[in-house]
């Protein structure tokens, strides 16, 4: 059965003397390599140039804050339940008076850890989160010498404070943050 028009039966006839000198084919091949010397290079010079990410690229997680710099996360655990790789653990704590500037709601995550070696960057945690507290940014986990370096705590995950460090905040936000996010929603 012929599948394509380009199919060519293999020629198994013994080589003639001229063919067995390989010369002509070698010259043809050298022409090809010479041509490639002058073609456009495919290299991306990494630290200077970067490959543009797709708009739906899912990178490292970010724990979000609202516009006043209060943490969104309420430690409800939905992300941990949604996580197929079981990479997320957290411990909840109750907000005490005086911490209103730190946490948006009465309950917050005292400890929030994501094991980046387990994480498969599927983004299900982002979908599960009712408070828009977690989303996947456009950076990826850097290399590390130890396994424990890949367990990211709140220290690493929290987005910079939007009021105290507005530049770092904007940078961490990236261009992936949709405009419809409830950044300025009033406190529930």
């Amino acid at each position: 059965m012929q599948l394509t028009q380009r199919a060519k039966p293999v020629d198994r006839s013994p080589m003639t003397f001229l063919e067995s000198l390989y010369l002509w084919n070698i010259i043809k091949g050298m022409g090809i390599t010479l041509k490639h010397m002058f073609l456009k290079k495919a290299t991306i010079q990494y630290p200077e140039e970067k490959r543009p990410f797709s708009p739906v690229f899912r990178g490292l997680h970010v724990l979000n804050r609202d516009a006043e710099g209060r943490e969104n996360c309420t430690a409800c655990g939905l992300c941990a339940v949604a996580c197929p790789a079981e990479a997320i653990t957290m411990e909840a704590a109750e907000r005490v008076p005086g911490e209103e500037k730190l946490y948006r709601e009465e309950k917050y995550a005292a400890k929030y850890e994501i094991n980046m070696l387990r994480c498969i960057f599927c983004g299900l945690c982002e979908e599960a989160c009712p408070k828009d507290a977690i989303y996947l940014s456009q950076t990826f986990a850097p290399a590390n010498y130890a396994r424990k370096g890949f367990i990211y705590g709140k220290q690493e995950l929290l987005i910079p404070h939007p009021v105290e460090q507005p530049e770092a905040y904007q940078k961490a936000l990236g261009d992936r943050q949709p405009a419809s996010r409830n950044q300025n929603q009033p406190v529930a």
């Binding site: 010397m37 002058f38 290079k41 495919a42 290299t43």
Partner: peptide, 10 residues
Amino acid sequence: KIAGWMQDRH
């Protein structure tokens, strides 16, 4: 260098 150029690299 030449190996790179022939393989479309720098």
